[in-house]
Design a protein around this nucleic acid. Structure first.
Lengths: 167, 167
DNA sequence: TTGAATTTTCAAAATATTCTGAAAGTTTTC
DNA sequence: GAAAACTTTCAGAATATTTTGAAAATTCAA
C-alpha cells in the first residue's frame, strides 16, 4: 500500500534523524506515529504498531508529555489511556524551543555566572579566562533571547514580519 | 590554586553540558581546554591534561576540526602538530550554527521533499498525511532560514539591529 | 471491599557508543 | 633509504544508554 509505505518511511526516518542529534529513537518514532494518527492511540496500539515493549512505550510517552508534545486523553467509557500529538506543528516547534531553552541554555547561563563569581583575583590570567566565560555567557544569552522571541511569536508573525529581515 | 580550579570546573562542566544534548563529552572537554589555553597544544599535552588515550584525542581533534571549531597549527621547528581553538566565540557559535544547518536541517528538508514526491494519489488520507509533511517542511525551512540569517550576520549586527526586535 | 484491568517501575539483558592501546601508516631527518 | 618522530587506525574493552518483561502499584467497576 502506497500511503502506508510513505507513513512508515516517515516514522522510520524521523526516528533516525532524531538519533543524529541526541534524541531517543523510539521516542521520536512514537511521536511520528501519533502525529500521523488521526485518532489517539493507547499503549497497546503503539506497542503493536512499533513492535516495542510496554515499558518502553510507557517511558517514552511520559517523556513526550514532559516535552509538551503529546497529551493524554481519557475517552469516556474507556479504561485505557489514549494519547494524541499536538497537531499544530508550529506550536510543537515552539514548545521544543521553550524546552531546549530551559534544559540547555539555562544551565549554561547559570554555570557561567557561578564560575564568574568564583574568580576573585584580577590577574591578567584571570582576566583572560573571564573573557572566555563572559563571551560564552553573551552568546548563550543571545541564543536564549532569540529563542524566547521566536517561541513567543505566532506563526503568522514569524512568517511575515520576521521574514522581512531576509533580503 | 584558585584560577586553575575555576578552569577545571569550566572544562568539566562544559563536557557535562555537552552530553545533555548529544555531543561527545571528551570532544567538548578538548574544545574547552583549547579555548582556555593561551598557547596551542599538541596531542601529548591534551592526553596528559585530560588523562585520555592518544586515539581518543586524535579522533576528537579530527571531529572538532570538521566542525570548524579548532585549527591545526604547524609551529616552525616543531615536528608535532599543535591545535588551537577559534577564540572568537561569536565566530565559533556561527560555525556551529552553519554545521547544524547542514547536518540536521538539510536532511530533514531533503527527506520531507522525497516523501512528498512519493505520495501520488489524492485521497483525503493522503492529503492529511501531506499536511503534516508540509508543515514540518515549513518549520524546518523557517529554522534553516533563521539560522542562515544569524550565522551570516556579524556580532555587531546581531547585538544591535537584531536585538531591536525585542521590546 | 475485591479483583480485574491497566499503568508504572526497575533489575537484568541487549544494544550502542566511546575509549584504549598497540600496530600500522606517514612524514621528516640524517 | 633507514630510522626516528609522529599520526592514524581499529579491534576489543569499558561505559553508557536503551529496551525488555515481569512484578508491584494503581485505578476502577461492581
Amino acid at each position: 500500500m502506497e500511503l502506508q509505505e510513505a507513513k512508515d518511511r516517515f516514522i522510520h526516518t524521523w526516528g533516525t534523524l532524531a538519533t543524529q542529534w541526541g534524541i531517543n529513537r523510539t521516542m521520536s518514532q512514537i511521536h511520528a506515529l501519533l502525529l500521523l494518527s488521526p485518532k489517539s492511540l493507547n499503549a497497546d496500539e503503539i506497542m503493536e504498531e512499533l513492535q516495542i515493549s510496554r515499558g518502553n512505550v510507557n517511558m517514552n510517552l511520559r517523556d513526550l508529555m514532559s516535552w509538551g508534545l503529546i497529551y493524554k486523553q481519557l475517552l469516556p467509557g474507556e479504561r485505557k489511556e489514549y494519547f494524541q500529538a499536538e497537531k499544530d506543528i508550529w506550536k510543537a516547534a515552539r514548545q521544543i524551543g521553550r524546552e531546549r531553552r530551559r534544559r540547555e541554555l539555562s544551565p549554561i547561563l547559570e554555570t557561567m555566572e557561578e564560575i564568574k563569581k568564583g574568580v576573585s583575583d584580577n590577574s591578567p590570567e584571570s582576566a583572560e579566562f573571564l573573557k572566555v566565560v563572559n563571551d560564552i555567557y553573551a552568546v548563550a544569552g543571545f541564543a536564549d533571547n532569540t529563542l524566547e522571541l521566536v517561541t513567543k511569536a505566532e506563526e503568522s508573525w514569524l512568517t511575515s514580519t520576521f521574514m522581512k529581515l531576509f533580503k
